[in-house]
């Protein structure tokens, strides 16, 4: 055994330098060159004031904004998590039903079968920054009434902020909620 201990020890030290010092420092150095955050995470500013991280979703519960999806952590991005609820869990199903009821109260004129399921189910990270286009559009009626705006104008705002599939043919379409709401505030 002894003939293996010394090389093990030395090799561990050498590889610590290579994998735990040189490698991350190199990646951090490259990260400095990236556009946006320079490796710190890109922030979004309104009038020079940081209002959020571009990639991290945030809570929107106010009726005048497009709501985000439910989050198991209330969008506290200090500790990401999903709900981990199983599909047949009765408490979970009750919770979803409550979210549907709440949504209907806040969105008069919307029929239950128009509510997209993603708007009443929690995301995996608890920090999902996006909505599906359908989940944004179902909220247009409410926001138009509160802000006294034309529904068509809001629908085209959602369309403008919809990112289509990658290269036009891979993956889903999505709308970034923070950017959409910033644009909403800027609408006259």
């Amino acid at each position: 055994m002894k003939q293996y201990i010394l090389p093990s020890l030395k090799l561990t030290l050498v590889l610590l330098v290579l994998c735990s010092i040189i490698y991350p420092l190199f990646v951090a150095a490259v990260g400095k060159l990236t556009p946006g955050g320079g490796g710190d995470g890109e922030t979004v500013k309104v009038n020079g004031k940081v209002v959020g991280y571009a990639l991290i979703g945030q809570n929107f519960t106010n009726d005048k904004y497009f709501w985000s999806r439910p989050s198991a952590i209330g969008y506290n991005a200090a500790g990401s998590a999903g709900s981990n609820k199983g599909p047949t869990n009765p408490d979970y199903l009750k919770q979803v039903q409550n979210r549907i009821d709440t949504f209907l109260v806040h969105n008069p004129g919307i029929n239950k079968k128009e509510i997209p399921a993603e708007l009443v189910t929690a995301s995996a990270s608890g920090e999902d920054p996006d909505l599906s286009p359908a989940a944004a559009k179902v909220q247009v009626k409410r926001i138009a009434a509160i802000r006294h705006l034309h529904e068509n104008k809001l629908n085209s705002l959602v369309d403008e902020h919809t990112d289509g599939p990658l290269l036009g043919f891979m993956g889903p379409s999505k709308v970034n909620v923070l950017k959409l709401n910033i644009a909403l505030d800027e609408l006259k």
Partner: peptide, 29 residues
């Protein structure tokens, strides 16, 4: 990194969201 994953050694950040809530954001290498 070029798609926005943090790579620096900056610690947790605290910001005020558009709606006015306080939000903590974990970062790191």
């Amino acid at each position: 990194a070029f798609n926005g994953t943090p790579s620096s050694f900056k610690g947790k950040d605290t910001i005020i969201t558009l709606q006015g809530d306080t939000q903590n954001v974990s970062r790191g290498p």
